[in-house]
Simulated assay, not measured.
Amino acid sequence: MTKQDKPENRKRSGVTRRGFFKRASFTVASAAIVDSGLINTKEAAAAPSNFVGPGRTPIQLRINGMERRVEVEPHNTLAEVLRFKLGLTGTKVVCDRGSCSACTVWLDSTPVCSCMMLVIDVGVRAITTIEGLAKGENLHPVQSAFIEYDAMQCGYCTPGMVMSCAALLARNSNPTLEDVQAATSGNLCRCGTYPKVFEATLAAAKSIQRGRS
């Protein structure tokens, strides 16, 4: 064996035996899939895509009775768009994972955590935020009662609490204490103002009943 023939003196080609067989197997498999008709490249290129993204996409939202157009990315949550793109900062983002309900808004009158919903999933449903609860200068009875009964402390949970309580009164104008407790069971108040929230909501219910009589 000459000096050039020794294994340690041979130049490596950069392709190992294992690497060669891996590449060869992948090429053969790819060709077989295309030839079998499992992938039709022409049809795949011509087929319309229902996906939104990956970049910014213009959408239209119905918020507080108004049509709003905004450019969003597929990963944007409803809470992010309301606060940071549309300036509706009454919707608070506290936990950002659906455990405190401070970001509660209504979708077609149903309370939802807006931090847990992608904005592209809203579709044509009507969005109501805390800014849209009042009628001009006239506060919603729940808002007025929260002020009267001092049902606020730090204020972070207040918009979500108000939206949950107002949704309850929209479907049940004569709730019991247990009804109010159930309606706000997902709303976290670190200041512990629950008794005042319950008191204010029951008072708002009576106010609504008087207004209807």
Rank of each mutant, 00 (worst) to 15 (best):
residue 50 N to Q: 05
residue 100 C to N: 00
residue 3 K to Y: 09
residue 108 D to P: 06
residue 211 G to Q: 02
residue 85 K to S: 13
residue 51 F to P: 02
residue 35 D to N: 12
residue 170 A to G: 14
residue 76 N to V: 07
residue 4 Q to K: 01
residue 142 V to K: 00
residue 105 V to T: 05
residue 138 N to V: 15
residue 32 A to W: 02
residue 103 C to G: 07
residue 122 V to D: 05
residue 18 R to Y: 14
residue 72 V to W: 01
residue 30 S to P: 09
residue 48 P to Y: 10
residue 209 Q to G: 07
residue 35 D to K: 05
residue 137 E to M: 13
residue 14 G to N: 14
residue 86 L to S: 07
residue 154 C to K: 06
residue 79 A to P: 14
residue 101 S to N: 01
residue 186 G to W: 12
residue 111 P to Y: 03
residue 151 A to W: 07
residue 197 V to S: 03
residue 139 L to G: 09
residue 49 S to I: 06
residue 97 R to G: 07
residue 163 M to Q: 05
residue 64 N to Y: 13
residue 111 P to Q: 00
residue 43 E to W: 11
residue 14 G to R: 14
residue 44 A to S: 03
residue 138 N to I: 15
residue 55 G to H: 02
residue 149 Y to D: 02
residue 52 V to G: 04
residue 65 G to D: 02
residue 36 S to A: 08
residue 124 V to K: 13
residue 12 R to F: 09
residue 71 E to D: 13
residue 67 E to A: 15
residue 125 R to C: 02
residue 185 S to V: 06
residue 56 R to S: 15
residue 122 V to L: 02
residue 176 T to G: 15
residue 182 A to G: 04
residue 106 W to R: 01
residue 32 A to S: 10
residue 174 N to D: 13
residue 189 C to P: 00
residue 4 Q to M: 04
residue 11 K to G: 00
residue 206 K to R: 11
residue 207 S to N: 14
residue 31 A to C: 11
residue 12 R to P: 08
residue 169 L to A: 15
residue 130 I to A: 12
residue 112 V to E: 08
residue 200 A to C: 05
residue 43 E to C: 12
residue 117 M to K: 08
residue 76 N to Q: 10
residue 33 I to E: 00
residue 53 G to I: 10
residue 8 E to M: 10
residue 10 R to I: 15
residue 44 A to F: 14
residue 49 S to V: 06
residue 111 P to H: 01
residue 104 T to V: 00
residue 12 R to T: 05
residue 66 M to I: 12
residue 95 C to F: 05
residue 94 V to Q: 07
residue 94 V to E: 03
residue 168 L to D: 01
residue 171 R to F: 08
residue 77 T to C: 12
residue 179 D to R: 06
residue 193 T to G: 08
residue 190 R to L: 01
residue 45 A to Q: 10
residue 212 R to T: 14
residue 199 E to Q: 14
residue 78 L to H: 06
residue 193 T to F: 03
residue 150 D to R: 10
residue 19 G to T: 11
residue 98 G to C: 04
residue 195 P to K: 01
residue 47 A to Q: 12
residue 102 A to W: 00
residue 53 G to V: 08
residue 202 L to W: 11
residue 98 G to N: 06
residue 144 S to V: 05
residue 38 L to N: 08
residue 37 G to N: 05
residue 110 T to K: 12
